[in-house]
């Protein structure tokens, strides 16, 4: 049992987006909940089928628009429900991580992790560590600073 999990008091309202794959990490987060493992409350989870579904845009756009952190989590490599989805994700996200600085985003605001559906305790640790890191970084300086606010409706692309 993890005893000392930091539960930072939300002096500032920090917002973190978590992309969790349906099969492993979303289940891991559920397991953590069922076990009542206490976690910081900053994370907002978006359920996706696979980390391979994560478009770099899903990470970059919120960070540009002032969200304070983005965490992607999926199945451990070799344990992907879709065999190789997380391997594509790992390459894509690693490149993206190094690319964020070029867009004026502190790359520490983004990270990815592997948490299986049984690893409730590991999920608690991942969330706590990442939330603590974002709290230390403080609110995203890009929030509302001359960056155009999103237009009404969805951020559509040509389809």
């Amino acid at each position: 049992m993890v005893q000392s999990v930091p539960s930072p008091a939300p002096q500032t309202s920090i917002r973190i987006i978590g992309f969790l794959c349906n099969w492993c990490s979303y289940g891991g987060a559920d397991t953590a909940g069922v076990c009542r493992f206490k976690q910081p409350t900053d994370l907002r989870v978006v359920r996706i089928p696979c980390t391979g579904r994560v478009d770099p845009l899903f990470v970059a756009k919120p960070l540009i628009y002032g969200v304070d952190g983005v965490l992607v989590s999926g199945c451990h490599p070799k344990d992907c429900h879709y065999a190789v989805g997380n391997l594509y994700a790992r390459r894509r996200l690693e490149v993206l991580k190094n690319f964020l600085s070029f867009m004026g985003i502190d790359k520490r605001r983004f990270d990815y992790a592997w948490v299986s559906a049984s690893e409730g305790q590991r999920w608690q640790q991942v969330v706590s560590d990442f939330s603590e890191r974002i709290h230390q970084l403080g609110p995203n300086p890009l929030a509302g600073k001359g960056i155009p606010q999103p237009v009404q409706g969805p951020l559509t692309r040509a389809t």
């Binding site: 987006i17 978006v46 899903f58 628009y65 969200v67 969805p154 559509t156």
Partner: peptide, 9 residues
């Protein structure tokens, strides 16, 4: 997915 993110932006 972007619509979900939009609410947090």
């Amino acid at each position: 997915i972007l619509a979900e993110l939009n609410t947090l932006c």
